[in-house]
Design a protein around this nucleic acid. Structure first.
Lengths: 225, 225
DNA sequence: ACCTGAACACCGTTCAAGT
DNA sequence: ACCTGAACACCGTTCAAGT
């Protein structure tokens, strides 16, 4: 008689399920089972799969660390450091939910409080840093585009680069791959310790991310007069 | 008696279907119908949906314009211009196939001749431009990450920004949005002509793309000693 | 108001049966 | 070798029926 279902509980269960079993196993039936309820009961509270995705998206966005911009507001850090902390957290969070990314990049902000809150924190930080107001949104979108792609790249298999070199017609790329991978393993070995390597995380994703992030931060700094 | 099906024909039909009806309507059943064949017949030539996606991905990658790197090889253009032409083409092509992007970013290159060919052209160009060999792959991946995200952003609805301002707690972002959108429409109007506006293309995606592309190109140029 | 259970139109994939 | 047709285990969504 007392209702057990509401949007809040559904969003929580969806986040749990997708965290535990992976983003592609989020299904109406599985979600309902986890909530101990019939599948059709979900439709009393959410509009459908799209609505569920947008609910989940906002929940995930709430995990992104924007505290560095508050610190910037208090004069405790620089804009470049604030951007770097935020961007790394953003990539880290969404690399855990790759299948959400196409939806996020294409979904309106209205009705997503956590998302709106994040954008506001970043916008405040850029404004305080001296970025001209008409450039604030383009900077955010440019960062986001890069961060989405980088989050996807975290899940790229390392075997992308360990292809057999006997395939013809890719001599320049092959030699570039070899130069890159050997530089990565060299840098990795210098720690000397045993390899933890829990998840199947692509070890070749970090250098490209650092390079692109640096590029975007420098460009942003050059926008302030 | 003469077989009508092979991987080549299937790839062509998939590209046609996805171009005509959108990337999310690519389905085994629909593809089979278009080929005038039973659904199960497809499994004689392709391994399944994943295999089909990788076939399609390579076909789409073949549409990307890498001719600028050949021109660079002939000394007819600069590395920055070659990168810009390639990047714009890349975004343009994949903005037509947004649902492919998560797969592309996460799929091995081996067995994808067009893809391998594109990487080789870009790698050759970067090497010729003087980028240190161990940096070539990171540069390519950083560009790609940004290009994937930018291609997704092209399909973001313009209504992302036209949200009602009565929602509380986003004052910085709201004012930034207003400054940006008014600067875009001002720049757009100065052409004066009638608006062609065929597809539902997001008009606010171009400025962020230009900004990020410029940032990445400058960073790449700074890598050459 | 909220939930159940049955139904519908779809998925991808497998497999015996034909030729 | 290659295709058909039926079958299977799933999707998301709708809707009458219950309480």
């Amino acid at each position: 008689v007392t209702p057990v279902l509401d949007r809040q509980r559904i969003a929580e269960a969806a986040l749990e399920l997708v965290t535990a079993e992976g983003s592609d196993r989020l299904t109406m039936a599985r979600l309902a089972r986890r909530l101990g309820v019939a599948t059709s009961a979900l439709y009393n509270h959410i509009g459908g799969r799209t609505d569920l995705t947008s609910l989940l998206q906002d929940a995930v966005m709430g995990l992104v660390d924007v505290s560095s911009f508050a610190a910037l507001g208090r004069g405790e850090t620089s804009m470049e450091d604030a951007l770097a902390v935020w961007a790394r957290s953003y990539r880290e969070v969404f690399s855990g939910y790759p299948s959400l990314i196409p939806y996020i990049a294409t979904m309106p902000i209205s009705g997503a409080p956590e998302t709106r809150q994040m954008y506001d924190a970043v916008a405040a930080g850029l404004q305080r840093g001296g970025v001209p107001s008409h450039q604030v949104v383009p900077v955010i979108i440019a960062f986001e585009s890069f961060l989405f792609g980088s989050a996807l790249d975290v899940h790229a298999p390392a075997t992308i680069f360990t292809t057999p070199p006997d395939e013809a017609g890719a001599t320049h790329f092959s030699s570039a791959v070899e130069a890159f991978t050997s530089s990565v393993t060299a840098a990795g070995e210098q720690g000397g310790g045993a390899d933890a390597a829990a998840g199947a995380r692509n070890p070749y994703a970090d250098a490209p991310f650092a390079l692109g992030l640096e590029a975007l931060i420098r460009a942003t700094l050059q926008l302030v007069p």
